[in-house]
Computed example of a mutant assay.
Amino acid sequence: MLIETYSKRIKPFFTGFDRTFLLFVVLLIAVGILTLYSASFNLPVRVTDQLRNVLLTFVLMWGIANLSPQILMRLAIPLYTIGISLLIAVAIFGLVRKGAQRWINIGIVIQPSEIMKIAMPLMLAWYYQRRESALRWYDHIAAFALLAIPVGLIAKQPDLGTAVLVFAAGFFVIYLAGLSFKLILPILLAVTIAAGSLIAFEHKICQPQTQWPLLHDYQKHRICTLLDPTTDPLGKGFHTIQAVIAIGSGGIFGKGWLKGTQAHLEFIPERHTDFIFAVYAEEFGLVGSIALLLLYLCLIVRGLYVAANGATLFARLLAGSLTLSFFTYAFVNIGMVVGLLPVVGVPLPFMSYGGTALVTLGIAVGLVLSMGRQKSLIQS
């Protein structure tokens, strides 16, 4: 009798979640552990650390998923305010490492920009929920202002990768809230023309004596190296060149698990974090890479399904933006590894080694599960 009563009390905390969405997350983490095991052949403790990170992530994921949307809405303003305050503190007296001022010591050393990956979409989803009955065009301007503050502070550190992720998370909320695609199209056209011009006039604009307005020399060098990695094969271009060699050497079916020579001979830099996709592609080939991309696609489609069935505007916007953020993570990381995008230090979601990134992603998954669980509990 006691066991039955206890079971009834516990059961609600484990029901109502979208199991399909959670299954795709678990599969990606499992693939990540297998790939990390191969990438960390010379330092197996990384796998143990990552398993500990996975356990912590699932605990946080479960805890967040059991929070109601009403509680999460009340957390939006405090979390956003704390995040902005910490970013300002970083700009004033943050710790400098490798030329970047991204960290602050508050008893423990933290990177406040990670907070904004969650706080930004949470804040904007709350804002649009409050404005749902009387939404006007200027509300989008106010939303962009809320977004511009943290993105500007993060970009100034400088941390372009995190700035892109925070901007994407906030922008997806604004777009899903009703921003017209007609307003986005001219920007996409301008970016396309700019990218085409860079490619067409690469040999002229990448000369050492050519100065680029509004950009530092290292930013110019990063873009020029992206256009032609062979101009700096032992420097900035080394990562891209070695990653592309690894991916190409994998062929159609790959060399097999634990048999990747580029990784095991230590040619691939950061092979356990930002460039883990190169390790995976070398060992599992084109077929394995397509399977991994399909797994990410399934995760995103299912997440959007959860978002589309959200009980409130807040739930739909938050779940939708976080799901599309997973797409941004994967797109930027894989584009970076194959040489289509600059190397900006964005991890491959659920696969790259690292506790902070995995915990942040786990919290995002918990939020998506919470948004989907709300309607499930109402219907039951």
Rank of each mutant, 00 (worst) to 15 (best):
Y175S: 10
K255G: 10
A190S: 12
A243E: 07
K255L: 11
P269I: 13
I149L: 13
A148I: 08
S249Q: 15
C206V: 07
W257R: 08
A194F: 13
R271C: 03
F172M: 11
I187W: 06
H221P: 01
Q242S: 06
Y175I: 14
T231P: 02
G237E: 11
F275T: 04
I205Q: 08
H203V: 14
K255A: 04
A194G: 02
A143W: 01
A145K: 06
L185K: 06
S180H: 10
P229H: 04
W212N: 06
I199L: 09
T192P: 00
H272T: 10
L226H: 06
A243T: 10
K182D: 12
G237M: 10
L160A: 01
F253M: 09
T210V: 15
Q207L: 12
G254C: 09
A168I: 01
A263V: 02
G256W: 14
T261V: 14
A190G: 03
K220W: 08
L198K: 08
Q219T: 05
W257D: 08
L183W: 14
I154P: 01
L153T: 05
I268S: 04
L214M: 10
D159W: 03
I184S: 04
K236Y: 08
T261F: 05
P213R: 14
H216C: 02
L188D: 08
G178M: 07
A169M: 05
L189N: 03
I174P: 00
P208E: 15
L265K: 10
V191E: 10
L179C: 02
F172E: 09
V151M: 09
Q211P: 00
F238W: 14
G250N: 12
G248D: 11
D232M: 09
L215M: 07
F238M: 10
G152H: 03
P213C: 09
A177N: 06
T240M: 07
L165C: 01
I187P: 00
Y175L: 15
Q157A: 07
K236G: 11
G161E: 02
I247R: 04
H239L: 01
G235I: 07
I245D: 05
I154W: 01
L153K: 03
K182I: 13
D228H: 09
T273N: 11
F144T: 01
A169Q: 02
G178I: 12
I184D: 05
F172N: 03
F167D: 02
K236I: 15
I241E: 12
A194T: 13
Q207A: 08
D274W: 02
L189T: 11
D274S: 02
P233R: 10
W257A: 01
A169G: 03
I187K: 03
C224V: 03
D274K: 00
L226Y: 06
A168L: 07
